[in-house]
Each structure stands twice: as structure tokens, then as C-alpha cells.
Design a protein around this nucleic acid. Structure first.
Lengths: 129, 129
DNA sequence: CGCAATGTACTATAACTATTAGTACAGTTA
DNA sequence: TAACTGTACTAATAGTTATAGTACATTGCG
């Protein structure tokens, strides 16, 4: 399903959370789609099932997936994720990152071009399938 | 100088690094300006000097400050920070955060408005003093 | 029903990290 | 010299991460 980088120092379960978030946000994984069972993914990545469980618990807490005993874990609908604190946090992150690049000397025109690309990629993405 | 949040789970030294980066990027701290000594800031924040030292070491490694034995630590010039890997990393972060907000249902127009504000705040900021 | 697959919860252990504490040394300024 | 600065260690404690193992409840299927 994806690769892990064990050298980065970043906890494995966080890497798994991030990878799933990317797959969900990019529209590759769609609402109500089933994701691998805790034991399957652990076998696939040759890591401990508890680590996957921790990642899935975090994803469920953040609203990205939901789990049903005996059935499995599934992608949530986008409106389950919405959270005002999170919106503010993400906006601040965007602000900080853009300002950091500008401070480092990136030209504002280059920055604006990059952002335009993000929006146009979004509009042409897998969300509207 | 600033406040710490000891409950957040985020390491103290990382919070200090982030705060300084904010102050530097926003133009509040200017190149060659002196920042508090390791011992002073530790006293001020009532934490251990080693924690400050770790933060300063990280800031120096990232190119935000430079330290001189016997003299103190000072803000670097912006061109000391530039690093291609870092630029790519920040661009990816911006991409991920924007896509996450769009996926959550934020209207693209609202998002574009928010980003416009970032740019205009930058142009009117303390960098051109 | 019986069985296998699923998620979930818990304990225990080892390795690593973060923080504090203390000491020591080297360079700079007055 | 004295007082300040950064820097480099060691040690101890607390918390986090990852692995290992066990157990239980729910679901779907033959």
C-alpha cells in the first residue's frame, strides 16, 4: 500500500497516519472504502499490529476513518473531519510556511504561481470522480 | 520574551525554536540583533539552561542564528537559511495543508482570500523598515 | 451453531527521547 | 582579574515508541 521510512526519526504510527491522510485528501481513498485490517497491514509492512492499531485509533480520533468491530475500518465522509480549531491551526501553518519561504528570499510571484498550481491541481483532481 | 505551553506534548526546545523562527520571519527580530543569553532566557522561562542551549543549537543548525563564544547569540541574515531541500519541504507542507482544508469543505474562494491576506500582510510587514 | 476474521483492550518490556541538574572549560569584554 | 558569554560533557528521571503476547466482543459465512 505504501512505503515507510524507518530512519527519519518520525514515529512509525505518525507516518502511517500521514500517508492515509494524503491518500484520503487526494481522493485516492474514497468515503466508505475499506482499508486493510490491522493484522494485514502489519504483516504487509512487517511491523507490529499494535503500531497499526495506534495509527488507526489516531485516524479515527481525527475523523478520517471509522471502525466497526468484526467488519473492519473504513474511510469517513469529509464532513466528519471539520473542526474549527483544526481549521485555524491549518491556516496558521499555511501562514507560517508561506512567510518562511518569503523570508528566505523566494519571489512572491514564484510563490503565488506555486499556490495557483495547487488550486488548479485540486480542481482537476480525483475528488470529482 | 514569550510564553510556553507545557501541556501541549510538544517538546519545550521545539516550541522555543518555533517561537524564535516566528519572531525572525515576521521581522520582529532583525539580522545581527542579539538574543538573550542561554542562562538569561532559562531564568526568564524558569526552565533548564540546557533546554535553551538545545534550542539555540537547533536554530544555529537551521541557519536562523549564529553564536559567538563569550559574546552571545545573534540573528542571521535571511540568505543564510536558504536550502533547496527545505524549500521543497515547505512547498509540500503548504500543498498538503491547503488540500486538507479544501477536502474538509472550505470554499476555494475563502481559501484564496486567506492567502491573499498573507501576501498583503507580508508586503506591509516589518521587513521593509 | 461453529469458525474465522475483524476491532479493541490490556500488560509487560526494551529502547529511545526529553528534561533537569550539575560541572567544567574556552572565548570576550571591561 | 572578574564577570559574562557559548559549549561540552555526565548522570538521573520521566515519558514516549515499538514490540510481544494475551484476551475478549462483534460480524459474516458455511
Amino acid at each position: 500500500m505504501f512505503q515507510l521510512n524507518l530512519k527519519t526519526g518520525k514515529p512509525i504510527y505518525e507516518q502511517i497516519v500521514d500517508k492515509f491522510k494524503e491518500l484520503i485528501i487526494s481522493g485516492i481513498l474514497k468515503p466508505d472504502e475499506k482499508i486493510p485490517s490491522v493484522r494485514d497491514l502489519a504483516k504487509q509492512l512487517t511491523i507490529n499490529p499494535n503500531t497499526i492499531q495506534k495509527a488507526y485509533r489516531e485516524l479515527e480520533y481525527q475523523g478520517y476513518i471509522y471502525s466497526v468491530q468484526g467488519l473492519g475500518s473504513f474511510i469517513s465522509r469529509p464532513d466528519q473531519i471539520m473542526d474549527l480549531n483544526k481549521v485555524e491551526y491549518l491556516k496558521k501553518q499555511i501562514h507560517n510556511n508561506i512567510c518562511e519561504l518569503l523570508y528566505m528570499g523566494i519571489k512572491p510571484e514564484e510563490m503565488e504561481g506555486h499556490i495557483k498550481n495547487i488550486f488548479s491541481a485540486w480542481k482537476g483532481g480525483k475528488h470529482n470522480d
